[in-house]
Simulated scan of single mutants.
Amino acid sequence: MPDADLIAEKTEQAADALAEQDVDCWLTFCRETTEIHEPCLPFLLGFDVVWPTAIVVSKEDRSAVVVGRHDAPNARELPHEVYPYDESLEEALLGLLDEIDPDEIAVNFSRDDNTADGLTHGMYLRLRDLLSGTDYDESLTSAEDVISAVRGIKSPTERARVRQAVETTEELLGEMRDRWDPDWTEADVSDWLHDRMDDRGLGSAWSWDYCPTVHAGGDREVGHTLPGELTLPPGEVLHIDFGVKQDGYSADMQRLFYRPSDENPEPPEGLREAFADVRSAIEAGRERIAPGVAGHEVDSAARDELTDRGWPEYEHAFGHQVGRNAHDGGTLLGPQWDRYGSAPEGEIRAGEIYTVELGADTEWGYLGLEEMLLVTDEGTEWLTDPQESLSVLARPE
């Protein structure tokens, strides 16, 4: 069944965002969403549709759904007016727009944000045909800014669910550390975590095969790689990038584990210093986070701290939003590179949840850390329990 309480929270947020941005209404137009997903549907409807469907929210806090008759019963428990149809949604949709009388209709397309780009080209053309000859023929505009606010600023229900996903992810990583065996390969680590996720009915925050991503030691090529057959050599570092999806919401964190050797039962000084450099760069970025700050400014603070400590630049963004997915769109804490489009130019808002992440390649392995935080009016609040030192695995045999 649809999550009526969550949808009520997000619909209210949508009306507030429209009023703040002075956009008359937001129209989500979709069909056959099990085949082609509409990223905004979970916030507005909570179930997949078959026939063409229109969900309209106005800045006057009115919301309505024009939906095929066989899908309509699913919508009746939601905070929307429901207009079922059989042959065509045209009459009901145009009648609804006439009542709202918008100058601008924000729809789901975006050049740079995939979470705001759910309107297919075919449905866009179909919508243009529906509006042809009406007063709204030239009214369509991007809903990117509206969606960024709705998806980015987490409601109370969403915050609680992200916190739970974080807690569960940390719990599973702690259990893995306690159960870890020196004979385990990267794939064994991944399989162990997958088995625990299956036992608890959990999903993965990104593609199952790559979540977790596991890198064992200094010889491992780092990236979005599948766990392989390498075991962790004594005196080196196990790097894990992992997050569960629980009740529809995700966590995303990276943790580091040191395997003792006879020579170095504790992390050697050089490794501890490299870890401290990574930790300091993450803190430098976090300290720059506040409402109204542009994403690229945060990335620059972290990037400069790391390079000032003698390490190469990392080749990715410093942080991204997390919510229903590990990469949740909106403002990016990243450099102003072409591949990121306008996302790093966006401003941070209170209520958004971000990762802060970077790393350094060392002889002991990749030292990648990733934490999660909530932006508050005053600054930030950690959602993860920050890793302040290397976690030591089993003692040498």
Rank of each mutant, 00 (worst) to 15 (best):
L271N: 02
A274V: 05
R339P: 13
R309L: 06
A326R: 02
H327T: 15
S300Y: 05
H296Q: 08
G319V: 02
P268D: 13
A301C: 07
D338F: 14
R288D: 08
R303I: 08
L271V: 09
N325F: 12
A290V: 07
R279A: 11
G285L: 00
E287I: 06
A302M: 08
R339I: 15
G310V: 10
E287L: 09
G334I: 05
H327S: 14
A274S: 09
T331Y: 04
P335D: 09
R303F: 04
G292V: 13
P268E: 08
R272T: 10
W337E: 15
D328R: 04
E287Q: 12
A281V: 08
G329Q: 06
A302Q: 08
L271C: 06
R303P: 09
L271H: 01
R324Y: 13
W311M: 05
D328T: 11
L333S: 08
E269K: 02
H316P: 10
R288V: 09
S280D: 15
R324V: 13
A284S: 11
Q321C: 13
G295C: 11
D338W: 13
G285Y: 00
V298E: 04
D277V: 12
S342Q: 14
A281E: 03
A317C: 15
A302D: 11
F318Q: 03
A284W: 00
D308F: 05
E266Q: 07
E269I: 04
R324N: 14
S300P: 10
R272S: 12
G285T: 04
P291V: 11
G334D: 07
P267N: 04
G310K: 03
D304I: 09
P268I: 01
E269R: 05
A294Y: 06
A276V: 07
F318Y: 10
I282W: 00
L306G: 03
I282S: 03
E273S: 13
